[in-house]
């Protein structure tokens, strides 16, 4: 292994960068949400305070819980997200990638959900189990649409399976500019909303009915890492979409401004969807994804195969 890979993983596109940016963007989310409700909102570094506070709290393991799984689930999930963000980041900023890493990204993102399900189901708490069950249903709802969305740029770039190759294929014409690209991009944003369990699809966490679902019994550092990995997704998913459809980032000169704008645009669209929609029922979510989102993604895929 080359030493710079460790740097990629732990510092720049990986742990430190994504973690910090995630905590900052989480603050932006809370601030904008507060403005939607005519509030002032928390101070800017609120999420850092929350994170460090949780690190110092007591960790309680319930008597019924499978202790090893209960403790390891948040950390495994966290390392999945770090890995994914490092892979997306290195492909985007350094052009380092390997054949087939889109598939690895898909798997790692699914493993995160699996860890949420395992961590929630092993606590011995009824609400956590309900939350875990709902997470499975939500995974069934959004996964197919998400995979179809990821297939569109693969097809459009001439069946290249590496993030790097997809980026290179967009040198002459961004994928978002084509009919199939824009459809897949929009469905992709909706899938992300479900994958991050943001409000219209926050069915597994549902604070007001099943009290945070899978995370209910977690306290202290494990909870801190659940929160951190959730916030890091605010970075990982928009970056993935930008890489696949919007030509990545060009970090020279004014390109930095354009890069920040692109990123913020996706984040703000997600926050707006989150704040203007009530939570849907689980059957509504399944209906929505299986009847509307997946066929749309399929149409986008067919269009892509036909070359539109």
């Amino acid at each position: 292994m080359r030493p710079e890979y460790l740097f990629y993983l732990l510092v720049f596109p990986g742990l430190l960068f994504t973690g910090t940016l995630g905590l900052v963007v989480g603050c932006v989310d809370r601030k904008v949400s507060a403005r939607f409700q005519f509030r002032v909102g928390p101070p800017f570094l609120q999420n850092f305070n929350d994170f460090f506070k949780l690190l110092g709290k007591e960790t309680i393991i319930t008597k019924e819980a499978v202790a090893s799984l209960f403790i390891s689930a948040p950390f495994i999930a966290f390392s999945m997200i770090v890995l994914v963000s490092a892979m997306i980041g290195t492909a985007m900023f350094f052009g380092v990638s390997f054949g087939g890493d889109v598939i690895v990204v898909m798997y790692l993102l699914m493993l995160y959900s699996v860890m949420v399900i395992l961590g929630g189901a092993c606590t011995g708490n009824v609400y956590s189990s309900i939350g875990a069950g709902r997470e499975i249903k939500l995974l069934l709802a959004d996964e197919l649409a998400f995979i179809l969305v990821l297939l569109v740029p693969i097809v459009k770039s001439g069946y290249v399976l590496s993030l790097d190759g997809i980026l290179a294929a967009q040198q002459d014409g961004l994928f978002i500019g084509s009919a199939s690209g824009i459809i897949a991009f929009i469905v992709g944003i909706l899938c992300i909303q479900a994958k991050m369990t943001l409000t219209p699809f926050d069915i597994p966490e549902a604070e007001t009915e099943i009290v945070d679902g899978p995370f209910m019994e977690y306290s202290g550092p494990p909870l801190a890492f659940w929160k951190l990995s959730h916030l890091m997704m605010w970075v990982t998913f928009p970056f993935l979409l930008i890489l696949l459809f919007w030509g990545g980032f060009n970090l020279s000169g004014l390109g930095i401004l354009w890069a920040i704008l692109k990123y913020l645009l996706i984040v703000v669209v997600m926050i707006i969807i989150k704040n203007t929609n009530p939570r849907v029922r689980i059957d509504t979510a399944l209906n929505f994804f299986w009847k509307y989102a997946t066929p749309l993604a399929l149409i986008a895929l067919i269009l892509a195969v036909l070359g539109a």
Binding site: Q37, V40, P42, I60, D212, M216, E217, S219
Partner: peptide
């Protein structure tokens, strides 16, 4: 409620005693 907006001080209502 939003009128008093306790989130200004970082105060948040949580549903689970573990948090």
């Amino acid at each position: 409620t939003p009128r008093y907006d306790l989130e200004r001080f970082g105060i948040k209502l949580v549903g689970s005693i573990r948090h």
